[in-house]
C-alpha cells in the first residue's frame, strides 16, 4: 500500500490527517467563541455534542485521525533520523529561509499532545466521558455545563499559562503544517507558494486567536 511504503504516501497521510485536524480545530474554535457571548448557547452546543451516538462516533474518528497523525510523525521522524546517517555536522548554519517551526515539528507536536492530554483531562473527561459512564457530576459541575468548566479551569492561572504555551506551540505547528500539507498534496507552485504561505499564517493566527480570546476572557474576568 503506497500510503505506508512510499515516502510521499506517508506524507500524504500526514497531510490529510493534519488538514482534517485543522478543520476540526476550526469547528472547535468557532464553537468556543459562543462562550464569549452566551452561556446558554454554549451549553446548548455542549448538550448537543454530549454522549450522543454521532458525537461519540465523531470523537472516535477524530481520535483515530490524531493517533494516525502522531504515529506517522514518529515513524517518519525515525526514518529521517536514520537517513541522516550516524555522523552529525560539527558546524551548522541554518539558512534564513528555513523556518524554526519546520525543523521542530515533532517537538511542537509533543507539546501539543501533552497539552491535549491536559485539555482532555480538564474537559472531555469531565464532560463526555462522565456522561458515558453515567456519572454526570464527576468533575463537581454538571457534565453538560461546559461553560462552568471553562470558568473553573481558567480561574486557575497555572492552567492559563499552560494553555497559552499549548496554543503557542499549536500556532507554530500550524504555520508550517498548513502550507506543508498543501505542498505535499501537490497543490503548490511558484506562484501559489507565497499565497499559501500567507494563507496558512493568517489562518493559523486567526484560529489560535479564537482559542486565546476565550482563555483570556475567562482568565481576566471569569464568568462576567
Amino acid at each position: 500500500m503506497w500510503l505506508c511504503n512510499s515516502s510521499i504516501g506517508r506524507k500524504v497521510v500526514m497531510s490529510v490527517t493534519g488538514l482534517a485536524l485543522i478543520l476540526f480545530l476550526t469547528f472547535h474554535g468557532s464553537m468556543n467563541l459562543v462562550a464569549l457571548f452566551s452561556k446558554e448557547g454554549y451549553n446548548m452546543i455542549c448538550e448537543f455534542l454530549g454522549a450522543n451516538w454521532y458525537a461519540v462516533a465523531a470523537t472516535l474518528a477524530l481520535a483515530g485521525l490524531a493517533v494516525l497523525h502522531i504515529l506517522y510523525a514518529f515513524w517518519l521522524t525515525l526514518q529521517n533520523y536514520r537517513a541522516r546517517g550516524k555522523d552529525r555536522y560539527a558546524v551548522t548554519d541554518t539558512p534564513k529561509k528555513v523556518e524554526w517551526a519546520s525543523q521542530n515539528m515533532l517537538a511542537l507536536g509533543v507539546v501539543i499532545v501533552l497539552g491535549l492530554a491536559l485539555h482532555l483531562f480538564n474537559f472531555w473527561y469531565n464532560m463526555m466521558f462522565a456522561e458515558l459512564i453515567h456519572q454526570p457530576m464527576m468533575g463537581g459541575i454538571h457534565a453538560a455545563d461546559g461553560y462552568g468548566y471553562i470558568a473553573q479551569t481558567f480561574s486557575n492561572p497555572v492552567y492559563v499559562v499552560l494553555y497559552v504555551i499549548w496554543l503557542l506551540a499549536l500556532w507554530f505547528h500550524l504555520t508550517h503544517g498548513f502550507w506543508s500539507a498543501i505542498q505535499t498534496l501537490g497543490w503548490n507552485g511558484k506562484v501559489w507558494f507565497n499565497r499559501w504561505h500567507i494563507i496558512s499564517v493568517v489562518y493559523s493566527t486567526v484560529l489560535v486567536l479564537m482559542f486565546l480570546v476565550v482563555v483570556a476572557k475567562f482568565a481576566l474576568c471569569g464568568a462576567c
Partner: peptide
C-alpha cells in the same frame, strides 16, 4: 529520508532549484 518541506534544500541549491518542483513531483 521523507521530505518535511523545511526548504533547506532550496536555500542551498547552487542552481536555485525551487521546491515548486517537489510539489509537482507530489
Amino acid at each position: 529520508g521523507n521530505c518535511t518541506n523545511t526548504r533547506a534544500c532550496e536555500a542551498v541549491c547552487p542552481k536555485c532549484e525551487s521546491i515548486a518542483n517537489i510539489a509537482r513531483l507530489n
